[in-house]
Design a protein around this nucleic acid. Structure first.
Length: 207
DNA sequence: ATGTCGATTTGCT
DNA sequence: GCAAATCGACATA
C-alpha cells in the first residue's frame, strides 16, 4: 500500500444520489460504507440500517408540506450532500440528501457495522468494547464518526465525509423493510415500511 | 414572549 | 421500564 494512496475505494458517483427514487436509494445504501476523516482521524463502517424520508408528502419528514427553514434547507438541494440536524438538543442525526434540487428527499443512516478506525470510534464513544452500541443508532454513529451539525450541507464526495462501494452486494431477499422509528406522531405515514435493514445482521437492531 | 416537543441515548430503579 | 438531558424549531399569544 502506498503512502497517500491508503486503501481508498471508489466513492459513490453523483448519479447514485441523483436518482428520484429515495426508497430505492435507501435499500441500495445497505452494504455501502460511510467513512469520515474528521479531527484528523479516519473512521467508517458498513451501513446496515437506513430510513427513507420521501418528499413533501411525507408527514414524518422535516420537509413535510415543503416546509423550508434554515435547518431543512439542505434537504431541498441537489442530491449528494449531508443533512445533519440536532435531535433532542444533543444528538446529531446524519442523513443523505437524494434526488434533484427542489424535491426534499433524504435517507437517515441508523446503524453501522464498525470497520475502519475502530479505536477512534471507541474513544469518541467512550467505550471499551466493540459491540452493537458502538455505531448502532443514529445518534451513536454520528458520535463515533465525529459528525456534527456544522457538517450539514457538506458534499459527500469530498475529503471529510464520503461513501464508498466496496463491492458488498445485499440482495433484495436479505433486506427487511419495516415501519420507521420514533415518528408515531406522523400517523399512517410512520407505518409505511420505509426502514430498511440487512436481514440477520448482528449490528442492526434485533426487532 | 412563552410553551411544547422532537427521525435519541443513557443511567438508574 | 422510565425519565432526564438540552436546544432549537415551531406554534400560539
Amino acid at each position: 500500500m502506498q503512502p497517500g494512496k491508503k486503501h481508498s475505494m471508489p466513492k459513490l458517483p453523483l448519479a447514485f444520489y441523483r436518482s428520484p427514487d429515495v426508497l430505492r436509494i435507501g435499500r441500495q445504501l445497505l452494504g455501502k460504507f460511510l467513512v469520515t476523516r474528521l479531527d484528523g482521524r479516519l473512521a467508517g463502517g458498513m451501513i446496515v440500517e437506513t430510513e427513507a424520508y420521501a418528499g413533501p408528502e411525507d408527514r414524518a419528514s422535516h420537509a413535510y408540506g415543503n416546509r423550508r427553514t434554515a435547518r431543512t434547507d439542505v434537504m431541498f438541494w441537489n442530491g449528494g450532500v449531508a443533512y445533519v440536524y440536532l435531535c433532542y438538543g444533543l444528538h446529531c442525526l446524519f442523513n443523505i440528501v437524494t434526488g434533484r434540487e427542489g424535491v426534499p428527499h433524504a435517507v437517515l443512516i441508523r446503524a453501522l457495522q464498525p470497520v475502519d478506525g475502530v479505536e477512534a470510534m471507541m474513544q469518541r464513544r467512550r467505550k471499551t468494547r466493540v459491540d452493537r452500541t458502538l455505531a448502532g443508532g443514529p445518534g451513536s454513529l454520528t458520535r463515533a464518526l465525529g459528525i456534527r451539525v456544522e457538517h450539514s450541507g457538506m458534499d459527500l464526495r469530498g475529503a471529510r465525509i464520503w461513501l464508498e462501494d466496496r463491492g458488498v452486494r445485499v440482495p433484495l431477499r436479505n433486506i427487511l423493510a419495516g415501519p420507521r422509528v420514533g415518528v408515531e406522531y406522523a400517523g399512517a405515514h410512520a407505518r409505511r415500511p420505509w426502514r430498511f435493514r440487512i436481514r440477520a445482521n448482528p449490528w442492526t437492531s434485533p426487532a
